[in-house]
């Protein structure tokens, strides 16, 4: 479905992509992870024919995105990072524009409204919608012409957990119907929940890629959180299960009967990312 080889992009002096390679199969949900400025949006813009790379090749459905952008845009749906709908128009009017531009039937539009659960809001002006509903409107617009591949740039950015969860369910449903989804995010939990495969982008380079579970196994350090009784009070210890001293410590506490609780701590994608890039969590994840 998508092949990227040696893709490079510069904005003047600034290097946005340093020669990345990846491929995405038909029907996958693929996540591009990374902090702001990592090159995620640039990659999406190249794949959707909005930017011409400085070097390397990209193919979407066998076609070069920049040269064949008119043809490809009929096959791809794009959800941009910004909520760029027509605020003065209603939900229905917003979608009608793109229904006409794409030559989609009214039945097709009604079907999409139902799919994204916007039927009850179709006469509401876009500016009066909540952030979650605005995101649904953008998704409806991206899906209107029944694309084969969907590019989502930060699909749940700024949404509350409930709205984000609704979007996640919808994306899983769409993927179940055979749509290939490529999403960028700096929300590691979201990607962990949705994506079959991910690539970590950092400063224009892919620093790791693979299935989230495999990555966690490869890069993660399993830990054990142990609550121990010490001098009449409770103290929490975190033991590295791969560490040499951990077993000895645990054995001693067990023998002394001081262990109150013990929980395993699984590594998260966020932990792996910090480990890979060596940046602080606040700087990296909460952007």
């Amino acid at each position: 479905m998508i092949e990227v080889n040696g893709l490079k992009k510069n904005y003047g002096e600034k290097v946005a992509l340093k020669g990345i390679d990846f491929s995405i199969s038909n029907g996958e949900i693929f996540g591009l992870l990374g902090p702001n400025g990592a090159g995620k949006t640039t990659t999406l813009k190249i794949l959707t024919g909005q930017l011409l790379p400085n070097a390397g090749t990209a193919r979407v459905m066998g076609l070069e995105p920049w040269a064949k952008r008119d043809l490809l845009r009929r096959e791809m749906g794009i959800l941009p990072e910004e909520t760029n709908h027509y605020e003065r128009l209603t939900v229905m009017e917003n979608l009608q524009i793109f229904r006409r531009l794409n030559g989609v039937s009214m039945d097709g539009l009604k079907e999409i409204l139902k799919d994204v659960d916007l039927e009850a809001h179709q006469k509401v002006k876009a500016k009066k919608l909540s952030k979650g509903l605005k995101q649904r409107l953008l998704l409806a617009r991206a899906l209107l012409h029944k694309p084969k591949v969907l590019f989502l740039d930060e699909p749940t950015s700024g949404l509350d957990p409930s709205s984000a969860s609704n979007i996640h369910s919808l994306l899983k449903k769409l993927n179940g119907e055979g749509i290939t989804i490529i999403l960028t995010s700096h929300n590691m939990e979201e990607v962990d929940r949705l994506c079959g495969r991910v690539a970590f982008l950092d400063e224009g380079e892919i620093v790791a890629r693979g299935n989230p579970q495999d990555l966690k196994r490869s890069y993660g350090k399993n830990k054990l959180e142990v609550m121990v009784e010490e001098n009449g009070s409770r103290k929490l210890h975190v033991l590295d299960l791969n560490g040499e001293e951990s077993g000895e410590k645990l054995k001693n506490w067990m023998n002394e009967g001081r262990v109150l609780t013990a929980h395993s701590i699984e590594p998260s994608l966020a932990d792996i990312f910090i480990q890979l890039t060596g940046r602080g969590k606040n700087e990296r994840i909460n952007k």
Binding site: T48, Q50, R74, P80, F98, L101
Partner: peptide, 14 residues
């Protein structure tokens, strides 16, 4: 300014 032109450009409209 409101980035709606981007959406039109990304649609089949030339």
């Amino acid at each position: 300014e409101k980035k709606t032109l981007e959406v039109l450009i990304l649609s089949p409209a030339k």
